[in-house]
Write a protein that binds this DNA or RNA. Structure first.
Lengths: 347, 347
DNA sequence: TGACCTTTTTGGAACGTTCCAATTATATAT
DNA sequence: ATATATAATTGGAACGTTCCAAAAAGGTCA
């Protein structure tokens, strides 16, 4: 708990170098006011005494900080881990540090950790909200005092900036591609219906079918946990329905992998017996066998943009909300790939 | 950058409640010295004015903090992400917050971020070192001022506490199991030889062979990046060698999955045509097809233990180093599973 | 030399808290 | 009522910085 017996401060250096603490402060700030000679002398003593700048004291004096808070709903999901890494990159390069915490989809935990971050003086917050977060929750936590950027999951009604991927367009493009390959019985697999992401992707899926004059069968939409295990479960469900689909758009890549697992367990070959498209383009997507056709979201790039947006707002002091949707693109690989004739035969 | 026009402080509350700032401070600390009546009065004003405790100011006064630093070499690797989540859990529950950063295996970045954390007043540090980190590096950064716990990767010579998994025993058990299934040509796949983890697991692999009276063939040790993509590459290499092995212990699960991918690309069936054992037991291991036999390390539990160890040292002020190795266990699933006779035929 | 300008340096107040010693209020015993 | 113990409250210094106004140190020029 003790930070040190009492760590060496600016006045220790001042005393050692025979100058005033103000001068040492100026040296630390690389002010041009101080003469070359004293600057060197002071720097020598700084090095010698192993001085460590106390940014907390400076923050107190200046009523500002170079700390941002990042709260992510699930760090064990590699999509969000990549997102966090992207943020980390730009935050670090800007000379800031981050409190980075994992809410584990718990709004309680999220509330606590945001409160704690605020007490510790963050200058801004990036939030990938836990499932079930209300717009009013964050208003209560950060009442417009600091800029907030909400990413990935929309929080309708919250007076904050948002950075979302274009879920609707991505899903639509994916399903259009499946249709162009000749599929007409296309499922939408995975996810819980209470999330905004699910809703947007489902809408894209439906509209693509409708545009092609295909009626969207209710039974072809199969809910499950948005995870690999959930994908396995969803596939089991799918196998039981009559007029079984020949292709599926999955809520995300994790579900898609689970569906692949499930197909194999049934002796079916993903990409040959059944066409699959994922969503997110996690790193494993391209090395998996078969390589996963998916909608690429570039989570790392998204994290970078989110952090840039936040830093911009911090530095400009501007608090007006900005809503950005980042474009996505369909990456065609093997999992959707076989000629459709063959698929029809096997179904 | 601005934390607020000037956020409401303890004296604002004091003024509003008609008491002294000292009293407000006592209320905040839940001191029994203050009477019930004034406590309620003060708390009411705290709520009304939307007061936010300034922990930075308190830290300054007390020369201590409730912040820990966590630096992880690669957050996009789900093993390390789980590790971080484990730490997050106990850190948060203890009322601390964490600076959590990703070094991306760069020692430069690692150095910078640790320096930055120190300036921001961390009370302790947990480090999963970037590849190539020297013991002297961390001595330079934290000269015994604060407790440090090094996890996962050993840093021989560093005067810090360490928490490592029992790589040697795990690898040995895995190979012993393969031998008991009848395999005699066993490969060790993946990883770079300059890391401590690689060395320890390799040693376990060799000793298990030796104990069984099998000579360890040099050519059966195949280096590659410790990733899924690396596993694919390693398998390609393996396919070219004469007297091809019938089984392999992989450096970690990521490599093992890559090897599975590679086998499939060659029309071979992991677990049937070739036995595979991974290391780490990441979440996907049990849902993959075939389910991966692996050495379970429980990264989340390890993260928890690491955080507990650090907090203990912070609170006790003790700085003597403690070296813990956490035990591991072999989890037998399908990927190593088929009867050996069949494997021999196919090889 | 003194007057003036420029370059460097410097005390001291302030940021929001804690903590100590000292003070004031309240209760209890005589 | 006074004395005394106990409970509750308080002012002010301190933590390590920054920043302002002001002072000191050098130069230049008449």
């Amino acid at each position: 708990m003790l930070l040190s017996r009492t760590r060496t401060s600016i006045v220790d250096i001042a005393r050692a170098a025979g100058v005033s603490k103000s001068t040492v402060s100026l040296v630390l700030q690389k002010s041009p006011l101080v003469s070359e000679a004293t600057r060197e002398k002071v720097n020598a003593h700084i090095k010698e005494l192993g001085y460590i700048y106390n940014r907390g004291a400076a923050n107190l004096r200046q009523s500002k900080s170079k700390i941002v808070g990042i709260v992510v709903n699930d760090l064990t999901n590699s999509f969000f881990a990549e997102l966090a890494v992207g943020m980390d990159m730009v935050v670090q390069s800007a000379g800031y540090v981050q409190f980075l915490a994992h809410s584990g989809e718990s709004v309680d935990r999220q509330r606590e950790v945001i409160a704690s971050m605020r007490e510790n003086g963050i200058a801004g917050l990036i939030l990938s909200p836990a499932r079930g977060t209300e717009a009013s929750d964050i208003k209560a936590l950060v009442g417009g005092d600091i800029p907030v950027v909400v990413v990935v999951r929309n929080l309708p009604g919250a007076k904050v900036s948002t950075l979302l991927s274009d879920n609707y367009a991505g899903a639509k493009a994916a399903v259009r591609h499946l249709i162009s390959l000749g599929h007409s019985r296309v499922a939408f697999m995975g996810g819980f219906q209470d999330t905004a992401v699910f809703g947007e992707r489902l809408r894209g899926y439906r509209d693509a079918l409708q545009d092609a004059g295909i009626a969207a069968e209710e039974k072809y939409t199969i809910h499950s946990a948005p995870s690999r295990a959930g994908g396995v479960v969803a596939l089991e469900r799918l196998m039981t329905i009559p007029e079984r689909p020949t292709a599926a758009l999955c809520l995300n890549d994790a579900v898609a992998f689970g569906v692949c697992d499930g197909l194999r367990a049934h002796g079916l070959e993903p990409g040959k017996s059944f066409a699959i498209i994922g969503f997110d383009d996690v790193i494993e997507a391209k090395t998996a066998v078969p390589a996963l056709t998916t909608v690429s979201v570039d989570p790392q790039g998204m994290g970078q943009r989110a952090a840039q947006l936040l830093l911009k707002q911090i530095n400009s002091g501007q608090r007006d909300q900005e809503a950005i949707t980042t474009s996505v693109r369909l990456v065609v690989r093997q999992s959707c790939g076989a000629p459709v004739k063959q698929l029809e035969e096997m179904a």
